[in-house]
Amino acid sequence: MGRGRARQDLHLRAEQVRVSRLTRLLESEKALAAALLAPGVAILVIFIAYPFVMALWYSLTSIRVGDPGHFVGLDNFTKALNDLIFQQAFKNTVFYTFWATIFKLALGMWLALLLNRSFRFKRIVRASMLLPFIIPTVLSAFAWRWMFDPTFSVMNWALYHGGIITDRLPFLSSGDWAMWCAVLVNTWRGMPFFAITLLAGLQTISPDLHEAAALDGANAWHRFWNVTWPLLLPVTLVVVVFSVIQTFSDFQLIYVLTGGGPANSTHLIATYAYQIGVGSGLLGEGAALSLFMFPVLFAVVWVQLRYLKRMENG
């Protein structure tokens, strides 16, 4: 009995020593910080830093599928700059991003303002509004492609039988139309994100401020510009930054909807880079093309974040 207890004590002591060593290690802030950061850093390195560095390296070589190629300096970049289709794709990307973001912001704001009022079935409406957002882009883009289809377009059918048009509309078969169709689909898909985020922002604005403004003689329009808009601006900027990044680098939607056609008229940088890099197997040129997105996005984010910071401080 006595010996049994002594052995147990010994065990306990050994346990305590082990525990306390681990505790001490974890109590050191540096060690703990390193331990907690490690998984995140590993993920960033494997999935972001490594591919990015590889893309940088590829863009400087003549690598293609099945051929490691050799160092070619900036040849891929000069080639891209002289590539008329790439020039077109770059312009398309800017156009697509600009208009889609404008529409998403305007319509998203409008929706958010509506949803911020109280009405019947508000919750159902709010939930159903998220539908475009939660359907995978590929699926919804397919659905839209069918709606725009030259022969089976339900919209042409409806407009025609409604007596509104006599000739079919060339939704995806004319370059200009196709670009606007892509903007439309992107807007449809991205608007809920704007609306929900802006709505969350709206709900943080104290109703007292609107009441104070109403007493100060501001009508709905003045209240929007003097209360809602300035107080929502930080949130707005953040959603716009997100949206610009996503839209500028958009791939899926165009890939499914038009594949870049007709006649390359709807190519974005991402879809064209994919076509060259993966479709034609010119990995080096594709990498160089896709890297053109980087400085633009970097500039946009930098300008907007700086503005945001200034606003928070001033």
Binding site: S206, D208, L209, E211, A212, A214, L215, N219, V227, L231
Partner: peptide, 20 residues
């Protein structure tokens, strides 16, 4: 009458100053 036409002014409990 809407608030703005009543010729009144109000001081709110949390002041409701325009923060910006």
């Amino acid at each position: 009458l809407p608030p703005m036409d009543r010729d009144i002014a109000m001081v709110f409990q949390n002041y409701a100053l325009y923060p910006h």
